[in-house]
Design a protein around this nucleic acid. Structure first.
Lengths: 243, 243
DNA sequence: TGTACATTCTTGTATATACAAGTTTGTGGG
DNA sequence: CCCACAAACTTGTATATACAAGAATGTACA
């Protein structure tokens, strides 16, 4: 078949690239706004004179790039642009979400007592094997997971931790209310989501995320040690830092 | 054909997932170290009793997840694990790379005089339309792009900027040597790479990156305004922040 | 009226096949 | 010894086809 060769001759780039470019152009020009339903795989295949699998590839790659959202049985839609916002100063992500006019919800994956392994013990200033509270919570913005929070909390400083209803108030909010925090130690890094995080945040493993390690201290000692993971594609998170 | 149904019955997950899991397991167990050559598409297809396209899909997805690296004609290889390192304090990325025992190189994409548009003018404390120096440099770690640096520099405070050889010393290094910096204002965010950055960093558009805006000031005023973009998958970059 | 079901869309998975294109290796010929 | 070229790999692109599975819509029947 010479159709393949023809495409290569005319532009020296794969055919699916042309479809991607076309879709991008439509979105950038404002022709296709957010939530706009893009033509189906079959329609695009027909329009561009390619097979369904080629059109599908263009749609799939744009989905990976967070330009489109697909769902089986429904169709393919233009994704909402990622909002910008501050991050590291955020004390209560529920407020942050409410401030955007979105609905907040939480999914509690774990809330239990366990024993501290080395890393956690060091961070909390406890001896290895001490009892600690361990919680894993996923925070949702309009139903979409935007923060994975894994937290280890000192049972001596916050004894009532496990009795809290964290669907109402976030752990961070609760801690700032209960213990007067004097210091927050934060580390930021960019990582690829591991399997567990990917599953919880409903993103593909390997999707790059912003990971924040936060150690909150009160005058009595280290209260809590948290790992916060944000999918880089759902939120654009900023942080002002001064040296 | 019932083979498809059989797979669905046994695990209710697609067949390529099994191949992905297998490869992941081999890598995690240490059986397949970094740079190990993974079986070819045809080999995997035969081993798992699937078609080449299905095996290919597994390899492609793992490549997107930065677990594997592929190159046409050569084969598929286990990717090097992303190194961890500090970031925001880094003054000279060339030193940082040398400290890892890697080779440093720079690609100068732009080094010229231009006029400041609004955003840049505000950041540098100049009037709109003023002359500024504009440079775009890609920093390479062992030949692999790991930082995209776009910088606007004040010509009154650093008049010799354009005459520098930035393959020898980085702009940041040069600036700290020339102007005594009193303050550094940094903003961090996670973004998806745009087309220009993607091309420069040799990553797919949409790949999440750590983006850093940095405004360096001396006693005389704002010296430079830089935008640094790191591919989240090549480097694991950390930053210690204290509140 | 309303529920159950078939139809018809959509995207998702899987195969078989073909050729393009990049890399290495082996084989001759000069 | 070295160069040229063919062969044998690799991954990359593209097609045609089939069926699975999710979601909406219309239709027939109770």
């Amino acid at each position: 078949m010479s159709s393949q060769t023809t495409a290569a001759e005319s532009s020296s780039q794969p055919r699916y690239a042309a479809i991607k470019a076309h879709i991008r152009a439509q979105i950038e020009s404002g022709e296709w706004p957010a939530h706009f339903r893009v033509p189906s795989e079959n329609q695009l295949a027909q329009d561009f004179g390619v097979s369904r699998m080629t059109a599908r590839r263009a749609l799939s790659e744009l989905t990976d790039e967070n330009v489109l959202i697909r769902s089986q049985g429904l169709g393919t839609f233009v994704a909402e642009p990622v909002p910008a916002g501050s991050l590291l100063e955020v004390r209560n992500i529920a407020d942050e979400i409410a401030a955007r006019g979105h609905s907040y919800a939480a999914r509690i994956l774990k809330l239990e007592q366990t024993v501290a392994h080395t890393e956690v013990a060091v961070a909390l200033g406890l001896t290895e094997g001490s009892v600690v509270f361990h919680s894993i919570i996923v925070h949702l913005d309009n139903g979409l997971p935007i923060q994975f929070e894994e937290r280890y909390t000192s049972p001596t400083l916050v004894p009532e931790y496990l009795q809290q209803d964290f669907t109402a108030a976030t752990p961070n909010e609760y801690l700032t209310r209960v213990a007067p925090l004097t210091e927050v130690d934060t580390t930021v890094e960019a990582i690829g989501a591991d399997e567990a995080v990917g599953k919880a945040l409903e993103i593909k493993a390997g999707t790059a995320c912003l990971q924040i390690w936060r150690r909150t201290k009160s005058s009595a000692g280290t209260v809590s040690f948290a790992r916060l993971v944000h999918p880089g594609n759902r939120y654009r998170l900023g942080a002002q830092i001064r040296f």
